[in-house]
């Protein structure tokens, strides 16, 4: 996986956080894993930094010791920590199959042992979660479109928020179809091309622009959101057509 260097402030804060977590949790810290855009080396100024701390156990008091380092890292680099017991991992991977499948593909081990290597959500769980994510995206985006799209300046943010669920869903869909993509972004572009030729090309370009600069040409944002809803429907149909294998 891509190992682009992290921005210096992020690297410094992460290093500090991991050292403090090791001091606070001791032997109970099984692994510290960086995932999401930071792990991919595509961190933006507005991105969260996602870290999973896998714990052997969490005796009372240990969480208290983690409060200061976590608050600091959250303040400095918007670090979002998932605190999961090793015994909960398999269940969590089934419950949040798409997220864990994504982590399995895109992560960096910061400390401890790579527990993700042996963890793979079942195809049934991934299929189920994929459908759930796409339907949830469609329902939420419809509402947000109705609420926000009359204010043109709000639309780029709405559009930018479409990226994560759609790209993650596309990557998982390709995996379930037995294929691999270099990145979630590429997966979405590939599936969009396959499903509708050039139908969604412009919307995807606006999606990237909204994430890059939060500014779109006047009148471009709202049609792009509607086009992405259409693309999500197409992905959902494709997900529904997947063979029901265990």
């Amino acid at each position: 996986m891509d190992q682009d260097p992290l921005p210096p402030d992020v690297a410094r804060s992460l290093d500090l956080f991991v050292r403090e977590a090791q001091a606070a949790l001791g032997e109970d810290l099984v692994a510290a894993i960086l995932f999401g855009s930071a792990a991919e080396g595509r961190l933006r100024a507005t991105s969260d930094v996602n870290v999973m701390l896998v714990l052997a156990s969490l005796p009372p008091g240990r969480l208290d010791a983690l409060r200061e380092p976590l608050r600091l890292a959250h303040a400095t680099i918007r670090l979002e920590a998932m605190l999961v017991l090793e015994s909960e991992l398999a269940e969590a991977a089934e419950a949040f199959a798409v997220k864990f499948a994504d982590i399995a593909v895109r992560h960096r081990l910061l400390a401890g042992r790579d527990v993700m290597a042996a963890l793979k959500p079942t195809p049934a769980a991934m299929r189920h979660r994929l459908k759930q994510i796409l339907l949830n995206f469609i329902l939420r985006t419809r509402e947000r479109y109705a609420l926000q799209s009359l204010r043109e300046e709000q639309v780029p943010r709405l559009l930018a928020d479409c990226a994560a669920p759609l790209r993650a869903a596309a990557e998982i869909l390709m995996q379930l179809e037995g294929r691999a993509a270099a990145s979630p972004k590429e997966a979405l572009e590939t599936l969009a091309r396959e499903s509708g030729a050039d139908r969604w090309t412009q919307a995807l370009a606006h999606l990237s622009a909204a994430r890059e600069s939060a500014v779109l040409p006047s009148g471009a944002g709202a049609p792009a959101v509607l086009a992405l809803l259409d693309l999500a429907e197409a992905l959902r149909s494709r997900a529904n057509a997947l063979p029901e294998r265990p």
Partner: peptide, 10 residues
């Protein structure tokens, strides 16, 4: 200041 660069930015 390096550590809080991002915090200042947002």
């Amino acid at each position: 200041k390096v550590l809080t660069m991002r915090l200042l930015g947002r």
